Computed example of a mutant assay.
Amino acid sequence: MRVIFAGTPPFAAAALEALVAAGHEIVLVLTQPDRPAGRGMKLAASAVKQAALAHGLPVYQPTTLKRPEAQARVADCTADVMVVAAYGLILPQAVLDLPRLGCLNIHASLLPRWRGAAPIQRAILAGDRETGITIMQMDAGLDTGAMLAKTVVPITDADTAATLHDALAAAGAAAIVSALDAYGTLVPQAQDERDASYAAKLSKEEARLDWQQPADALARAVRAFNPAPGAWTRLDGAPFKILCAEVAREGEADAPPGTLLRADPAGLVVACGGGALVLHEIQAAGSKRMTAAAFLAGRALRPGVRLGD
């Protein structure tokens, strides 16, 4: 097929690589403009742009697709289909109507659950046992189009947003290739609005741990916010990131939530609203990521200290 591909981050780059490997003709790659990144804040190309250039594919980086010149560039491609994955720009109806077969979206959830910007993290936060990929025929709504295919991906107790992202990226790459191969036999299925939920964008403030919550909810939060924006609390008034944690096996803690119960090389054990949380990897303000053992080697921390204040 003649394919226009629209995407920006590594999740989308995996799908682009798969489409190229499958032999589809990529007539245009749409991706967001280069953004400042790194310590020097130099302009950096998106993962999709890097992949496209590596294959010698034409790249177009408009700031919006609402302008006539941008729509004309897409129309000139006479594409069979546009494949969209985490592009980050709104596709107006005029663009949705341009490809012969319309626009297909690779969405990282089992729609209609977790429509929106952060489906991977929201699934972990909610304690979902599975998520997946939905290949969807795009319409003007927010992830509301008819579903063409689904792939289920389990969520384990060890999954972080990073590991689940990688699993879903691989599943999405395989799913879009299969969907295009079988396009003529796929039967669109409308989403049931009664089952819809919204995966709102993450914020740094939301990633601040509330020690009044039960330990299992806080353990999910640590996994969901890893790597970004990073679960955090305060220790002696300074930000204190928590990168790896698990529910303590000893059960309920007889101390106010946020109280440090134990500090040894095995971890920092903190009382929660229900049970306790063992912090295995942390990052203090101005320091690098380290294990609890490494942290304690350079700092004395006694039980009774309150986190979060």
Rank of each mutant, 00 (worst) to 15 (best):
I242M: 14
N105K: 09
A292G: 11
A12E: 07
P214R: 15
E205Y: 02
E130V: 02
S197E: 03
E193R: 03
L243C: 15
A173S: 11
T131M: 03
G127C: 05
D139H: 05
G230K: 07
A300G: 04
A171W: 10
A182M: 08
L16V: 05
K288N: 13
A146Q: 13
K66V: 03
A15Q: 07
V59F: 02
I176T: 13
Q213M: 08
A173P: 12
L19F: 07
P58Y: 08
T233W: 10
T291L: 04
A37K: 02
D97S: 13
R299V: 01
A146H: 05
R223F: 12
S197R: 04
G230I: 06
L148M: 05
P58N: 13
T134F: 08
A15P: 12
I135L: 01
I90M: 02
G267R: 04
A117M: 04
E69N: 04
Q121F: 01
A15D: 03
V152N: 02
K49R: 13
G116P: 09
A86M: 08
A263T: 03
L98Y: 13
I135Q: 01
E281R: 15
I282D: 00
L261E: 11
P188Y: 05
C103Y: 10
A228G: 15
C103P: 07
V20H: 05
A167N: 15
G7K: 04
I26D: 13
A245G: 11
E193D: 13
A248N: 14
M41W: 06
D80G: 10
R115K: 03
F5Q: 09
M82Y: 12
P265I: 04
Q189F: 00
T131K: 03
R122P: 05
H280W: 08
Y198V: 10
A245D: 11
A245H: 11
G116Y: 10
G274C: 14
R208E: 14
V278T: 06
E246N: 06
A248F: 08
P227C: 13
M1C: 08
V153F: 12
P112D: 01
R67S: 11
Q283L: 00
A123T: 09
A217Y: 12
G308Q: 14
R302K: 07
E17G: 08
A94E: 15
T156A: 14
D210L: 11
P229N: 15
A158V: 15
A108G: 07
A190T: 09
R289H: 01
I135W: 03
A219L: 05
L218Q: 06
G23C: 00
E205T: 10
L101K: 05
D236I: 04
E17K: 14
D128R: 03
Q137M: 09
A253P: 01
T156H: 13
A255G: 01
Q212A: 14
P229R: 14
D192N: 12
G304I: 14
A22D: 09
T31G: 03
I4G: 10
Y60L: 06
P227W: 14
V48T: 03
H55A: 13
G298E: 02
H107I: 02
E252S: 13
L30P: 00
A140E: 15
I106V: 05
P188K: 11
E252D: 14
V83Q: 07
L164G: 07
D139G: 08
A44G: 05
V269P: 02
A300W: 03
P33F: 04
Q191I: 09
E69W: 06
G251V: 01
A47L: 01
